[in-house]
């Protein structure tokens, strides 16, 4: 065969095309590569005495690997076909403001989130649940502190008032020190407990009022981004309408 010394040139071209088509389905890529190989074979056969210049001209006319890849993506609707990014990029300024507002003043942010159509109801529910959970934690934390202190004051009050009178059988000199002994130990533990409690309280207050709304905003931002990539795939396959100005099926 006269085209044997020209083979490396062809093979290199096809390899480059294969690389450029790497995001196509394997079957589609193989089909296009086979078609190109047959085309090159036919084009060479049409010339009586092909040389390197002939091959280069044939490959030139076929187009650069990038050109072919772009066309293949648009025609076969894999990724990055023309109309898709526009529809996928629809979440814009409004959604950005909604996300930022959720992180800073979540009640306002969540109203904006619910007004937007860029999130699914499930996402909106999750995003709303997080700051509300934070609020619930804060409220639950703040109320028990009062209950606790009230309970403790009762505990302090009970032994002092009742134990001497309720247990008269116990000797008063023994009873008094125990009554005296309990109050000093009691405040000490409550002070320690109060230290831990205040640390935990700060954590819960900060987490509840800032951390969880921030997590909610992060979640919303993540959910905004995710449909963009999936839309490119599902929408991409049916996006061939971009190529033709008119419907191609007639009932």
């Amino acid at each position: 065969m006269s085209d044997d010394p020209l083979r490396p040139l062809v093979e290199r071209y096809l390899r480059e095309v294969a690389d450029a088509l790497s995001d196509l389905l394997p079957a589609q890529r193989r089909e296009i590569l086979d078609d190109l190989r047959t085309h090159i074979h036919d084009a060479l056969a049409a010339v009586p005495d092909p040389d390197e210049a002939t091959v280069r001209s044939i490959l030139d006319r076929l187009g650069t690997p990038d050109e072919l890849a772009r066309e293949a993506r648009e025609r076969l609707g894999i990724v990055g076909s023309a109309p898709e990014p526009e529809t996928a990029r629809r979440p814009g300024l409004f959604e950005t403001i909604a996300v930022v507002a959720t992180a800073i003043v979540w009640p306002i942010g969540l109203v904006l989130v619910w007004l937007s159509e860029s999130w699914q109801t499930r996402d909106k529910l999750v995003a709303s649940a997080l700051p509300l959970l934070g609020l619930a934690l804060v409220v639950l934390w703040v109320t028990p502190i009062r209950v606790d202190s009230r309970v403790e004051s009762y505990e302090l009050a009970t032994p002092v008032t009742y134990s001497p009178g309720a247990e008269p059988s116990v000797a008063p000199p023994v009873g008094t020190p125990t009554v005296l002994a309990t109050p000093p130990s009691h405040p000490r533990t409550t002070v320690e407990r109060a230290n831990w409690a205040s640390l935990l309280g700060i954590a819960i207050l900060l987490g509840g009022s800032f951390g969880l709304p921030f997590a909610s905003a992060l979640y919303l931002a993540f959910q905004l981004r995710r449909p963009k990539t999936s839309a490119l795939h599902t929408g991409g396959t049916s996006s061939f309408t971009a190529a033709g100005p008119s419907p191609r099926h007639v009932p």
Binding site: H39, G63, E67, L68, E71, R75, R248
Partner: peptide
């Protein structure tokens, strides 16, 4: 037809569409 090779993705799609 500016780049001849671009016909092949097109033919592939026409076949997939049943045209």
């Amino acid at each position: 037809l500016t780049s001849e090779g671009t016909i092949y993705p097109l033919l592939s799609r026409l076949r997939r569409e049943g045209l």
